[in-house]
Amino acid sequence: MVEALLWVGFRREEEVIDQGVGKSGRSYLEVVRGAEPRSIPRARIEIKEEEIRNNVCRLKHCLIAKWNPKSAREEELANLGWTSAKAWGLKGRLGLARMGKGCALLEFEMVEEAKRVLAAGVRAIGGIQLGLEMWSPSYGCCTEDKEGNDAWVRILGLPISLWVPSVLRRVGEECGGFLGVDPLTEKKEDLEWARIQVKRTGGALSCSMEIGVEGEIYTVFLWWEISPAIRKNRDGQQRREVGDDVDPRAG
């Protein structure tokens, strides 16, 4: 079982000699940055407003709820929808969908009740302090001039043999600059991916990386956790994009 895990995302060096990577004979681990992205046109589609009208109408009944992930246990979150509906005295139904750590979408059957809850300011629900705001089409997006200087990157399928602090640091440096490691990665509690925080330097984002260990090459893929970017199109309409030049889950 362990042997099989070590071979995830692995290929022999002989298969990549044509890419200019030969046997080095070195006794230390060498991180080799993946090939620079080629000038491939960014994929784009145009959507008519009528295609998303029904979905947007439903979202106008929604609030975004935020809380400190460390302040709530899983069993408390499972009952958050029911507890909130009772605390707010709702007559209509309330739906809840998670949007990530410490964030959820609350869908009210009646938009008037969503507005009333937002105006009432009742925030402590079942011991959880909530921050509430109305949903908007630009929620979760950032303007291009306000993109963050750092990002979290998931290294998908990183072989367990490479879960070493120095290796994660060198991968981070190749991604723009190493900043830190997710606690779950440090503790090796979730081996589906390794998660590191890196600096953003602008430009294209690498979607894969090669890690050379003496005579062998591992190829791993990168998942960038980046909010969609939004900007005004030339005709005055807003345009949304994900990441810079690649899909954050590219691979």
Rank of each mutant, 00 (worst) to 15 (best):
S166I: 06
E14G: 06
I226C: 03
A85G: 06
E174K: 11
P159Y: 07
A43Q: 09
I17F: 12
A204R: 11
L63Y: 03
G121K: 02
A124V: 05
G202D: 08
R154L: 07
V153D: 09
R73A: 05
R170F: 02
E186N: 07
I45Y: 09
K146L: 15
R26C: 09
N55F: 14
L90V: 00
I64G: 05
M99P: 01
W193Q: 02
I211L: 15
V2D: 14
I155C: 10
L130Y: 01
V111L: 04
S27R: 10
I217Y: 05
E133M: 13
L158H: 08
S84A: 14
G148A: 03
N55D: 13
K70P: 00
K115Y: 10
N54Y: 04
P165Q: 09
L29E: 12
T201S: 11
T185L: 04
L105Y: 00
I217V: 13
E76D: 13
I155V: 11
N54C: 00
V171E: 03
I40V: 08
V171N: 03
Y218P: 10
L118E: 05
G127S: 07
E50N: 08
G176K: 12
W82Y: 04
D235H: 00
L6P: 05
E186W: 05
A204Y: 08
G22N: 11
G215K: 14
E241Y: 13
V16R: 05
L191I: 09
R123W: 04
R195M: 07
G81S: 13
R231I: 00
L130M: 02
G121E: 05
K199H: 06
P165D: 07
E74P: 03
N79G: 03
W223I: 00
A194M: 09
I128V: 11
W135L: 10
V246E: 10
K48C: 08
G251Q: 10
E51R: 03
T143V: 01
R58S: 03
R44S: 15
R53T: 15
E49I: 04
I196G: 06
P137K: 13
E241A: 14
R98I: 04
S206N: 12
L6H: 15
E192S: 15
E36L: 11
R240C: 11
D244C: 14
A85D: 03
R240F: 10
R33V: 13
A78K: 15
I17C: 07
T219I: 05
G203C: 04
N79K: 12
I45C: 13
R38V: 06
N79F: 02
F108Y: 10
W82T: 01
K146I: 09
P248D: 04
